[in-house]
């Protein structure tokens, strides 16, 4: 099955959005470019048969985090359509450094002969192609490898259970929520003669 045209569409949108974030002078347009970029990234995930990750990307990232960011933009923009002024020299410098970095990464990472490196994966089973990874991911959370992964890893590889991060991340989210709520809210109770003189 040829996904090549779809890949090109999503890849161009992703890269174009990312570049748009950099070159745009208007903060809301930056946000819009970011949405385009991250949304197309979800498309790339679907092409890579990571449907669950792609859906999460849309739900959490695009539908949640970016909405939050746009909220931040709206709340902090001092005027409508605030422009960010950047001097031409800075733009040039940024572009030069960016291209340099990109070529470094590109000629480093892409030069690797991935095909020979990944020869071990040639006997991948049909399960890998179906793209229905939700169940496999769920099983991996409790440490059971998906069928197409058996034999690919040596040692404990592929048996890693992700129950711990799954649980511990909830504590993290709780703590973060408390922190964000603390910063966002006004003093709750009136401090009556307590030591809080900092504010």
């Amino acid at each position: 099955m040829s996904n090549q045209p779809l890949f090109w569409i999503f890849a161009l949108l992703t890269c174009g959005g990312a570049v748009g974030v950099v070159i745009s002078q208007n903060i809301v347009r930056m946000a819009f470019s970011l949405i385009v970029s991250l949304g197309s990234t979800a498309g790339l995930f679907f092409l890579l048969e990571a449907d669950f990750v792609g859906a999460t990307q849309l739900l959490v990232y695009v539908g949640g985090t970016l909405v939050l960011l746009i909220f931040g933009v709206m709340l902090t923009a001092s005027g409508p359509f605030q422009q960010i002024r950047v001097s031409p020299g800075e733009t040039f410098l940024g572009a030069a450094v960016g291209l340099l970095l990109l070529s470094v990464i590109a000629f480093t990472v892409i030069d690797v002969e991935w095909d020979t490196l990944n020869a071990a994966r040639t006997e991948a089973s049909p399960g890998a192609e179906s793209g229905n990874t939700a169940r496999a991911i769920g099983l991996r959370l409790v440490g059971i490898p998906a069928d197409h992964e058996i034999g690919v890893h040596e040692g404990r590889g592929g048996r890693t259970g992700y129950l711990l991060p799954f649980e511990i991340v909830s504590i993290h989210l709780l703590v973060v929520l408390v922190g964000a709520a603390y910063l966002a809210r006004a003093k709750r109770r009136v401090a009556d003669g307590s030591t809080g003189g900092e504010n």
């Binding site: 993290h172 408390v178 922190g179 030591t195 809080g196 900092e198």
Partner: peptide
């Protein structure tokens, strides 16, 4: 030193403990 007053204490210690859990990981 009383830097979080009683009002903000729970928040402060939640953050402190949360960060420590991360460090222990």
């Amino acid at each position: 030193s009383g830097i979080p007053d009683n009002e903000d204490g729970p928040d402060f210690y939640t953050l402190l403990l949360g960060a420590t859990i991360g460090m222990m990981l």
